[in-house]
Design a protein around this nucleic acid. Structure first.
Length: 600
RNA sequence: GGCCCCGUAGUGUAGCGGUCUAACACGCCACCCUGUCACGGUGGAGAGCGUCGGUUCGAAUCCGAUCGGGGUCGCCA
């Protein structure tokens, strides 16, 4: 090794030791005959003291050293002179008195500051990602990511799981997300698909008798991106045989609580992760990924407004639509502008708006006076309705009630978004809290309006509730499944299910999904076959590593925990991928490109 | 595919119809400085405002298109 120690690992125990350090110049302070260099390596930063007269290189050469140059320094670790200690630095009690310096490599002036924690344009960061990675934030995030995967591997290994790799080149399947395709040279006209997840492989491993499998697996989905979605992402893929849903959930709960306890103890997490059913979740929070760091639950107001004079509500009830509301504590202090923003949210989801009822801070909650209510509905709202409303919403003086009346899914979208927005505005969120929960009993099927058919909500290997199987043919929307999500702070961090392991049930599901029997046999023959050779009951879960690490790193964008992420258009700025390829490759693959589409 | 936001020296921002041949901070270059740690001091260089077109006597500033980045809805079993 060109160095004997790491900068950040040195402390007072090394005083008077001769060491050789190597790294990058993070900052220099040139005082003429005396120069300080903050030397950075992957472990941290230490101050180097350069005295012209004590060095092997000329004063001229010392003054030429610049940020990000790579230097190797030999010298003695000394305690700092009294009064010159730096409490802000981990190594601030000591310093390296340099005797010999080797300049290993010079550096151009970096395109953005490496030694400051400021926001740089994303495009620039991606173009020079290797420099961005030198910044302490990225270093810490990727270290945390390593710690997470390391912990996972140890934890699952200790529970006798074994890690098995599965193929990247797979057969394309019609269901689910759009596949990334890879053309085959040996089979002209045929394509592999990159895995959306190792779903089928892990089930085949269960049939293969490995009762406990895991893999930290790369997955690919060719869909539009978001700050929490990359075209390639990593999931912790877990599958077990002879398990019930509860076994999987308990395993994940133990893994996550122990991991967070060890790696990021500053977070407070529930000892037990609460479980909530999908239906209850939608009723209370309007979403299947609720943020439970704060209250504000959705209430149904139908019974209060059954005989109302408020025409719009009456109409909604007659049309079998819903009237639902949330109560924002102290929300009467919100500005008109904010209320307008709420209405814009409602319009975004295709509704006309939200009705607001603002309660004065002086109002007597047990005997409310209409004079202390501010609302556009006021003249049609009866005293009785007001009282019932306050009681139902458990409102207090100064609160704001927001009512959305529309189809159930529309009110859910609106109220769930307003709920989170309001909690942020009213400072109801404790950002040191990780409110994990499980959402269970997802519907087996959902109707896809675009394709005019039923699709699998989780995936087509999900086990339906035994007692709901008879509904598959006639009332598929009512079939519950053994599919579950793990949710944290309003984000889905993983989902899983107990799987179908019997061929006949699988065929019944495929039929429901209107997948032609012949095609089904072509696409899934291997699964059907496998199920017919003593497939054990099995199930699993797949937490997303990127999202999990982002949450633990307090990052809102998963790109901040991925070394080389892609842009929103799935491009890699650094390397230029995707790119056009030489005609000879296309010829070999027997592919031709529509020239109209080809631009440079 | 729809909607929205952003694009000014190397970096981060200001300027939002004439006072802008564009300002500030950091960085950069030169010189000075032996205890600094966001070192300090003196001096200096560096952009014509993503691109194209339009409106106007006059455009970083207004309008349109386009490119790039980001957000969001759809989509993401």
């Amino acid at each position: 090794m060109l160095k004997t120690h790491m900068c950040g690992n040195l402390d007072s125990s090394s005083i008077n030791k001769d060491v050789t350090l190597a790294g990058w110049v993070s900052r220099r302070r040139d005082h003429g005959g005396l120069t300080f260099i903050d030397l950075r390596d992957s472990s941290g930063i230490i101050q180097i003291v350069l005295r012209n007269e004590e060095l092997n290189i000329s004063a001229d050469n010392i003054s030429r050293i610049r940020n990000e140059w790579v230097i190797i320094v030999h010298g003695t670790i000394m305690i700092r002179q009294k009064g010159t200690e730096n409490k802000k630095m981990k190594t601030g009690l000591i310093e390296l008195i340099a005797k010999e310096i080797t300049i290993s490599n010079k550096s151009n002036t970096p395109p953005f500051p490496i030694n400051e924690d400021i926001d740089i344009d994303e495009l620039n960061r991606m173009k020079y990602r290797y420099l961005d990675l030198r910044r302490s934030k990225m270093l810490n995030n990727l270290k945390l990511r390593h710690n997470v995967t390391h912990f996972i591997r140890n934890f699952l290994s200790s529970k006798e799981f074994i890690e098995i790799e599965t193929p990247i080149l797979n057969v394309a399947t019609p269901e689910g997300a759009r596949d990334y395709l890879v053309p085959s040279r040996v089979h002209p006209g045929k394509f592999y698909a990159l895995p959306q997840s190792p779903q089928q492989w892990k089930q085949l491993l269960m049939v293969g008798g490995f009762e406990k499998y895991f893999q930290i697996a790369r997955c690919f989905r060719d869909e539009d991106l978001r700050s929490d979605r990359q075209p390639e992402f990593t999931q912790l893929d877990i599958e077990m045989s002879f398990v019930e849903q509860e076994d999987i959930l308990m395993l994940i709960e133990e893994l996550f609580t122990k991991m967070i306890d060890k790696l990021t103890p500053r977070f407070s997490i529930p000892k037990k992760f609460p479980s909530i059913t999908y239906n209850e979740c939608i009723e209370k929070y309007g979403t299947d990924k609720p943020d439970l760091r704060f209250g504000i639950e959705i209430h149904d107001l139908k019974k209060i407004f059954l005989n109302t004079e408020i025409i719009i509500f009456k109409k909604m009830i007659d049309d079998k639509k819903r009237i639902r509301a949330i109560n924002i504590p102290n929300g009467s202090t919100l500005s008109k502008k904010q209320i307008k923003k709420y209405n814009e949210i409602a319009i975004k989801y295709g509704s006309k708006g939200v009705a607001s009822i603002s309660l004065d801070h002086q109002i007597d909650i047990n005997n409310p006076s209409m004079d202390q209510v501010d609302s556009l509905l006021k003249q049609f709202l009866s005293q009785n309705e007001l009282e019932n409303l306050i009681q139902e919403m458990k409102s207090e003086a100064g609160d704001l009630i927001l009512i959305s009346a529309d189809e159930v899914s529309v009110t859910s979208n609106i109220l769930s978004e307003i709920r989170v927005l309001s909690a942020e505005l009213m400072n109801l969120i404790d950002y040191d809290k990780l409110s994990f929960c499980f959402v269970t009993e997802f519907p087996m099927f959902e109707f896809n309006k675009l394709e005019d058919r039923w699709t699998a909500m989780h995936h087509l290997f999900t086990m339906p509730f035994e007692e709901d199987i008879h509904l598959i043919d006639n009332d598929p929307g009512q079939v519950r499944s053994h599919a579950y999500d793990i949710v944290c702070n309003g984000q889905e961090v993983g989902s899983g299910s107990i799987r179908i392991h019997q061929a006949d049930l699988f065929l019944k599901v495929l039929k429901r999904l209107d997948i032609d029997e012949k095609i089904a046999y072509e696409q899934f023959e291997h699964m059907i076959q496998a199920f017919s050779y003593g497939a054990p009951p099995h199930g699993g879960i797949a937490p997303g590593i990127d999202r999990l690490v982002a949450i633990l790193a307090k990052e809102s964008d998963i790109r901040e925990v991925i070394a080389f992420p892609k842009t929103k258009t799935a491009a890699d700025i650094l390397t230029g991928a995707p790119s056009f390829v030489d005609q000879k490759y296309l010829d070999e693959l027997q592919l031709s490109i529509n020239e109209d589409e080809r631009q440079s």
